[in-house]
């Protein structure tokens, strides 16, 4: 007869091994990029335009481009996503329509990022004739992060106790006033968390902006929303695969800036979330 405790010890060893197989490489990725990328980053690198066919100089236009794209995406996705979450938590009944909306959100979250790129190309660039522009790219990214905003906002709204709503309604206050003055203010930290996570996602994605906005090399800053821009993730892709003989330092430096940006946003989101959980008054 096998000893059940020995079986258990073996099994637990493999479970720990599986965990380490995920955690250690992730740690390594971060360590490698920080170790090799951090020395490459200085003020010139952040504030200069790329020079000598992107083999020297900095990445300023890509940073600015990403900033514009991400701002545009959130400007589009936050109001729609937040109101959609309000609909689902406060108004939706348990019926077929609600079921379909939830399924649509799940699907929107699952659509491959490159398909978003195709969609943005077909709808915004070609059909609406926005061309490859900040507008097209932002809208594409905005639709892509919509499910993140909806899902996190919904969690935030649902975490507001039902009793607050009952109290407010029992005073003869209207439903919208209740949402506006009781539910939304108390859900702000959660909504903020979702917004920042959405920002981080939009900042890191490449495939949706490939054909809708990203410029291979465009040293000057955009003048309007109908201009193309460079963007950090696409720039990293370009200098890693499309341009030969780029100094390793520049590649690592770009990867570091992008990773730092995205992880920083996630960190803020996590901090807000845990602070909020501790501070909860009810």
């Amino acid at each position: 007869m096998r000893n059940p405790y020995r079986t258990q010890a073996v099994a637990f060893f493999f479970l720990l091994l599986a965990t380490l197989l995920i955690v250690v490489p992730v740690g390594l990725v971060v360590v490698i990029i920080v170790q090799k990328g951090l020395p490459a980053v200085n003020w010139t690198f952040l504030s200069d335009i790329p020079r000598q066919g992107m083999r020297a100089g900095g990445i300023f236009p890509a940073i600015i481009g990403t900033f514009y794209l991400v701002s545009g995406a959130i400007l589009f996705a936050l109001p729609i996503g937040l109101l959609a979450a309000v609909y689902l938590t406060e108004y939706a009944k348990d019926n077929l329509l609600t079921r379909i909306i939830k399924l649509a959100i799940v699907n929107l979250a699952g659509v491959p990022s490159v398909v978003y790129g195709l969609f943005g190309l077909a709808l915004f660039v070609v059909f609406f004739k926005f061309g490859a522009s900040i507008l097209s790219g932002s809208l594409t990214l905005g639709i892509m992060i919509l499910p993140i905003i909806i899902t996190t906002s919904r969690e935030a709204l649902e975490s507001v106790p039902a009793s607050f709503r009952e109290v407010s309604l029992s005073l003869g206050v209207s439903k919208w006033q209740t949402i506006r003055h009781i539910v939304l203010p108390n859900a702000i930290p959660g909504i903020l968390t979702g917004t920042i996570l959405g920002l981080g996602r939009a900042a890191g994605e490449t495939a949706p902006i490939l054909f809708t906005v990203a410029a291979f090399y465009l040293p000057q800053l955009p003048g309007s929303v109908f201009d193309q821009v460079m963007a950090l993730p696409y720039h990293l892709y370009v200098i890693s695969t499309q341009v030969p003989n780029v100094d390793e330092k520049i590649r690592y430096g770009t990867a570091f800036v992008l990773l730092a940006l995205v992880l920083f946003m996630n960190l803020i989101a996590i901090v807000i979330r845990s602070k909020f959980r501790k501070k909860k008054k009810w």
Binding site: S163, F164, E166, V167, S168, L169, S170, L171, G172, V173, S174, Q177, H181, I182, N186, K281, W282
Partner: peptide, 29 residues
């Protein structure tokens, strides 16, 4: 609901100050 008020089983203050709790309904109206 304005004419028929209700007091619930547990004390359920809203997450405001004392003053704002009492003033809430009045303001909303």
């Amino acid at each position: 609901r304005k004419r028929v008020g209700m007091v619930f089983a547990l004390p359920l203050p809203l997450p405001f100050s004392v003053f704002d709790n009492v003033a809430y309904g009045v303001r909303m109206h």
